[in-house]
C-alpha cells in the first residue's frame, strides 16, 4: 500500500482569481504582510500495490492526463509507504 499526496497549483504566470480574493480579504482583516495567495487542489490517492516504481510511473501519467491541466496548472506529488 502506498499513499500519494498530489498538489495541483495554478501556474505562476496565470491569474488566480480565488487567490486574489482571499488575499484581498486577508488584507482587509489586517494581515497586511500577506504578499501573495495561490489556491490549489490537494488530493490523496491510495495504491493497492507493492511496486513503488510502477505506482510512481502511473501517478505521473495520471497527473499529466487527468489530475492537472498543463495549460494552466502545475503539479507535484509525494508518495508515502
Amino acid at each position: 500500500m502506498f499513499k500519494a499526496k498530489v498538489y495541483v497549483t495554478t501556474k505562476a504566470n496565470v491569474l488566480d482569481p480565488q487567490g486574489a480574493a482571499v488575499q484581498q480579504a486577508l488584507h482587509t482583516m489586517g494581515y497586511s504582510a500577506v504578499d501573495d495567495v495561490r489556491i490549489g487542489k490537494y488530493m490523496e490517492l491510495t495504491f493497492d500495490t507493492t511496486d513503488r516504481a510502477q505506482a510512481e510511473a502511473e501517478l505521473e501519467q495520471m497527473c499529466k492526463k487527468l489530475l492537472a491541466n498543463p495549460v494552466v496548472e502545475d503539479y507535484r506529488y509525494e508518495l508515502e509507504d
Binding site: V14, L15, P17, Q18, N69, V72
Partner: peptide, 17 residues
C-alpha cells in the same frame, strides 16, 4: 474540447468568482 486538446487554451473560473 479544450480539455481534449481539440481546441487551444483552457477555461478557468470567472474573475468575479
Amino acid at each position: 474540447l479544450t480539455e481534449a486538446g481539440l481546441l487551444p487554451g483552457a477555461l478557468r473560473r470567472n474573475t468575479g468568482l
